[in-house]
Design a protein around this nucleic acid. Structure first.
Lengths: 262, 262
DNA sequence: GAATATTGGTTCTATTATCGAACCACTTAG
DNA sequence: CTAAGTGGTTCGATAATAGAACCAATATTC
């Protein structure tokens, strides 16, 4: 059993996103459909521990410095700065494009690390960005390695909520099978317009998908032909990345996903 | 009034540090002096929302990916990657040493951003590291701009808890006055052995200290003479940094500190 | 290999912390 | 001046929490 009170506090915390990083008390309580009293209590508690603070000039609540601290513990554990970052950097300099690491979390993909290329025109997406698994190469390459039942459910959701991006559920399922066979994916202009990406999946001991590694750049430069040429730059580093991620994966939440089948 | 339940959950979260990033349930409950039932409830709640997960091989709890997401919101808001990072990068390439941004939080200094130099031997400290204000140039340069009462209290604490680092409270207070006059500080081997640093304070609209900016490198290379020479590289960028931080400072927690005086 | 002491996890009820309507004091808009 | 915002507070009915006692499973001990 989980704590309802704490869950509410986390709901509050979850409202602070890139798109909406500042909230007024009443505004937030309306959005969450909670009494402003309780939101106020949650915020003061979070504030006392540095997770949140109230800006004096805007009079609104924002995320606090404490989160930088905690995220660093995660990064360190992930060995991102020590091992993964250098690898991504190497690929970026070899190909001249940005490199993105995506991780599977719950039923979504999260951009967890981005190394930008040095070119003037480059992919400069934002870390922490989270989107459904049916959009973009980096996400589809993950989706196609999940159990068929989950695939179908997510694709169906996609067809319902984003008919513009997923015009046909069946076509997407076929595409996923194709990606599965190839072990890599290419897409252009799906997550962000004018941005294309090539992606390979990353595995846990060679079994389950943990995420993906992608090279991303402007569509006009990163055509499907170019993508195929630079694919080996990604593949080359897969063994290392797999073995690191195997040790520091986030299996539990993925298990939630898998368990949800029965 | 703040929520006791939520506060307990945050206490749990706060236990995951760089030094101790993995916890067993019982181990954690003992350390926190809480019933294991409640710690368990907190952890499951945190787990459901991705703040924490339980590793399958170690059977221990660790911080989850959600925190990367939230920290990115903070970083974005701070405009670290957009504005501050380039400035720090410039200083690093000008001086050939690492550059560190420290922020005042509660009564401690937190390394909030580090740009490493490209030299083989370089300062490569860890972001998120938190230490008392009486240790190191980056922290003392903050401390000396706090109200005299606070200074005295913190220095006294330092003399009690770390007599090795603060042999004489009076000597340190004098040193702080000196730093205050100079508007910069130099230290060697205090926070980390063999590492020296030059620091300047960063202000909120020219009034209150928000943090500091430092150049850090190996003591043998970054002597006090060298430090003085490269000081202008820091000073040059102060106006920009001050104006950015003024807009995105974390005043509330600092106010806690100031209010605690009366 | 039986005994012991861990581990993570669950159940149940007396107790306690939480919730939310109603309430400030203050600012802004009309 | 009124009306409708804002953030913040109070207090009693109520619902969620705490924690002892309980598993089942694994490690450790002898």
């Amino acid at each position: 059993m989980s704590s309802k009170t704490v869950d509410k506090a986390l709901q509050v915390l979850d409202m602070f996103t890139l798109k909406h990083p500042k909230w007024g008390l009443r505004e937030l309580s309306r959005e969450l459909d909670m009494s402003h009293t309780i939101v106020h209590r949650m915020l003061t508690t979070l504030e006392e521990r540095g997770y949140v603070y109230r800006s004096v000039d805007t009079q609104k609540y924002e995320l606090g410095i404490k989160l930088l601290e905690l995220s660093n513990v995660v990064e360190q554990h992930f060995q991102i700065s020590e091992i993964i970052h250098p690898i991504m950097h190497k690929i970026a300099s070899e190909t001249g494009e940005s490199v993105v690491m995506t991780l599977l979390d719950n039923e979504e993909g999260v951009f967890s690390k981005i190394v930008e290329s040095s070119q003037q025109v480059r992919f400069a997406g934002s870390v922490g960005r989270r989107s459904p698994l049916y959009i973009g190469a980096s996400h589809k390459v993950i989706l196609c390695h999940l159990p068929k039942d989950v695939q179908r459910r997510i694709v169906r959701q996609g067809a319902e909520t984003h008919p513009d991006l997923v015009p046909s559920a069946d076509a997407l399922l076929q595409r996923l099978e194709e990606i599965d066979r190839n072990r890599w994916a290419y897409s252009a202009g799906e997550t962000i317009s004018d941005v294309a990406a090539v992606s390979i999946p990353l595995f846990d001991y060679g079994h389950k998908v943990l995420g993906s590694l992608s090279i991303a750049g402007p569509s006009y430069r990163l055509t499907e032909e170019v993508a195929q040429e630079i694919l080996p730059n990604l593949e080359r580093h897969r063994p290392e990345l797999d073995s690191i991620l195997s040790k520091v994966c986030f299996p539990t939440r993925r298990n939630f996903l898998l368990e949800s089948l029965h």
